[in-house]
Design a protein around this nucleic acid. Structure first.
Lengths: 209, 209
DNA sequence: CCAGAAGTGGAAGAAATCTTCAACTTGGAA
DNA sequence: TTCCAAGTTGAAGATTTCTTCCACTTCTGG
């Protein structure tokens, strides 16, 4: 039951260096940075990256678990909010602000290819919280009848796509799209063709590939 | 001034076969189908694909120019519409319906990597038409003051992103997102931080890569 | 029917990235 | 200080996709 032995001092230093380097590269270039690029930028050999992070998921989890926890914390805080709709809006804005800091993180949270166990667990924790908020907001008449958690997820995906498209040229423009999408959620007719519950997962993670 | 000589009969037949094959592959898999896959599916050699379409853009233009013309036609028809907002909504729905038929076409029209001269020209023709409709709708009080053509483009990108995420699992769900996004465009506060005019191009085509 | 221009096939080289590994270096316990 | 387990390096093989090229085949005009 004893965990793995601690790393040697130099190895731990290298590990931190690699994490910092990879984080910076992925903040601008997204998740698909090659191991060779990371190694070169950190001044180490490729073998070092592979030794420490044999699978790319190991690297992603180590890089982003703090941020993912932060986002889950936002969801928990939002769920406590008196005003359900305000809670939803607050949560979405916080989440998107975090994603705005790092293209890689956005790809991780909204991407359809790279879902790690970490992200899966985060979604599992957040989904019921969001569902509770949406239900409350509908019952309070703040959202139209028929609004579902999948609609909230869709709004997240929608604003995220604008963020991705405008990240370099107009870094703050996503807030305008957020206003559009949230206003739409409040005012759209959502009574018909309610999406399947399970769709939330698919919105974030295309299991067909 | 005489055009290129016509293809030999067998070559023309192969060309058509390649186009049909490539279209079908790209409808489900997107634009990044390898030339080898196309050749194999068509039963020809790779050399034949390269001889006919030396650049990938040659292939894309031959494949999609009809569809792109169709979409431009929709924009022209929408511009004639009495009710400006209804024209915008009608145009967007038509355009998305075409994109729903083919993942490849969606990537071409909304993608940020693959902009060909063809798509560029299409956007150049549609942008003033959309701008006219948006202006009219704002003046008529159908859209909030401050709404811009870039907001309309953002709505397009937003709904398209949901389409991409749900194409296989819930092929019709994008219509629900369209309702959300259009309702948002009507009801959001768009008075502040108007996006740059030139942003429309950037929304569709990230020139930084 | 024939000659030669047009077209075809697919092997092979190029380029990019992933992954492994054997020789070498280093930290730290004794 | 010594020693060796832990750590590092970067070259090299594997993979994948792109692209070229030339020996071979097929059309078509005369």
């Amino acid at each position: 039951m004893t965990g793995p032995p601690p790393l040697r001092r130099d190895a731990e230093r290298n590990r931190q260096l690699l994490l910092r380097t990879a984080y910076e590269l992925m903040a601008t270039q997204g998740l698909d940075v090659s191991y060779e690029d990371i190694a070169r930028a950190a001044g180490t050999g490729m073998g070092t990256v592979y030794r420490r992070f044999p699978e790319r998921q190991d690297l992603l989890d180590a890089l982003f678990s703090d941020h993912v926890d932060t986002v889950v914390g936002f969801a928990e805080e939002a769920a406590e909010h008196e005003d359900a709709l305000a809670g939803l809006a607050w949560f979405l804005e916080r989440q998107l602000e975090v994603e705005a800091q790092s293209r890689g993180l956005g790809e991780l949270l909204r991407g359809r290819d790279q879902a790690t166990a970490l992200v899966q667990r985060a979604h599992d924790r957040m989904t019921p919280l969001v569902a509770g908020l949406v239900d409350r907001a509908v019952r309070a008449g703040q959202l139209p009848a028929g609004a579902t958690p999948a609609d909230f997820a869709a709004v997240h995906v929608m604003v995220g796509s604008v963020m991705d498209a405008t990240r370099t040229r107009a870094p703050g423009l996503w807030r305008r799209s957020l206003r559009i999408a949230l206003a739409g959620l409040r005012h759209a007719d959502l009574s018909g063709d309610a999406p399947d519950e399970a769709l939330i997962g698919h919105l974030y993670n295309d299991q067909t590939r």
